[in-house]
Design a protein around this nucleic acid. Structure first.
Lengths: 148, 148
DNA sequence: GGCGTATTCCCCACTTTTCCCCACGGGCCT
DNA sequence: AGGCCCGTGGGGAAAAGTGGGGAATACGCC
C-alpha cells in the first residue's frame, strides 16, 4: 500500500465535519474499516491514522510503557486524551472532535495534507505561519535528514 | 481490544454520580461486567480500571509483593485502602466514593480522560494545574519516551 | 429492642447532542 | 453533451447526559 500524499483545502462546517479527499480514502486498507483515529499532532495540527495503523502503534509502543514512570504516564495522558476514533460517513467525511478543532484553531477551513503514514489537518493560517518559521530550507533539510 | 481514549467534562452531582462517556463504556469487555475498580490515582486524580484488568493486576503485581518489605507493605496499604468496586447504573454512571472525591478535590465538575488501560477523573482545576507544571513539552517528551 | 434518621440504590422523565439519511450543485471524464 | 463521482449543506430520528423522587436498606440513638 502506498503512502498518503497530496494536499487540499476543504471546508469544516459548523458540525465539525470535513471531507477526506477521495484519493486519501482510497489508501485505506479494508482492515481500517473506513475508520481513522484522530489525535493531537506534533506541532499545532490534527493527525489522522488509519485504524489498523493506530492499533499497531498502541500495541507495540504505548502498551509497553510503564505505568509507574512519571514521564511515560504524562505522555500517555496527552496522546490518549486527544485521541478518538472517527468513522467516515456515507459522504466520505469525518467529524472532528471539538477539543481538537480548538487546539488546532481550525475555523471554517482546513488544509489537509498527506504525510505518508498519516494525514494531517491544519488551519491554513497556522500552517502558513509554521512554514515561514522553519529556519532550514528544503534542500539543506534533505541533506541532514537523509544522510544521517 | 483498543485502549481508552478521549476526554470529556461531565457533571458530578451532589450524590457523587458521574456519567462515563459512552465511548469508554463500549471499551469494557464482557468480563468486566459493567464494573470498574476505582482507586486513588498517581497524581491527584481518581483511576478507574475495568474489573478484569484490575483483577489481573492484583494477581500479577500486587500478589507478588513481599509481606516482609516495609515499603511494599506501605504501598499495598495505600492502593487497597482507596480501592472500591463500582458498577455502572442503567444510565451509564458510577458513584464515586466520597473519600476519593475529597482526595481529588472534585466539586461539581469532573474531567474524564481515557489513558489506555484505565480512565482518569480529575477536578478540572487540578488537571490544568498539573498540565502547566509539567516542564517538558509534548514533542520533546515523545522523543524521550519513545526512543528509550 | 424499637424507633427515627440518614444513606443508598433504582427508576423515571427531560433536555441536549449526535448520528444518519437525504438532497443539491459543480466539475471531470467519457 | 451526458453521466458519474465528489464536495457541501441541512433536517429528523435516536442516543447520550442530567436531574430529581421514592422505596428499600443500614445506622445510630433513645
Amino acid at each position: 500500500m502506498a503512502g498518503f500524499k497530496g494536499q487540499a483545502e476543504y471546508s469544516v462546517d459548523s458540525k465539525g465535519r470535513v471531507t477526506i479527499p477521495a484519493k486519501m480514502r482510497d489508501e485505506l486498507s479494508p482492515e481500517a474499516d473506513g475508520t481513522f483515529t484522530v489525535t493531537r499532532g506534533f506541532d499545532q495540527c490534527v493527525y489522522l491514522y488509519p485504524l489498523d495503523t493506530w492499533t499497531e502503534m498502541e500495541e507495540n509502543e504505548i502498551a509497553n510503557l510503564s505505568r509507574y514512570d512519571r514521564e511515560a504516564r504524562h505522555f500517555v495522558r496527552i496522546i490518549m486524551r486527544w485521541a478518538e476514533e472517527v468513522a467516515l460517513d456515507a459522504q466520505g467525511r469525518i467529524k472532528l472532535p471539538s477539543p481538537l478543532i480548538d487546539f488546532a484553531e481550525i475555523d471554517g477551513e482546513g488544509r489537509i495534507i498527506g504525510a505518508f503514514d498519516h494525514v494531517e489537518i491544519w488551519a491554513p493560517k497556522v500552517f502558513d505561519q509554521y512554514m515561514n518559521e522553519q529556519p532550514v530550507e528544503y534542500e539543506t533539510l534533505a541533506e541532514r535528514v537523509m544522510s544521517g
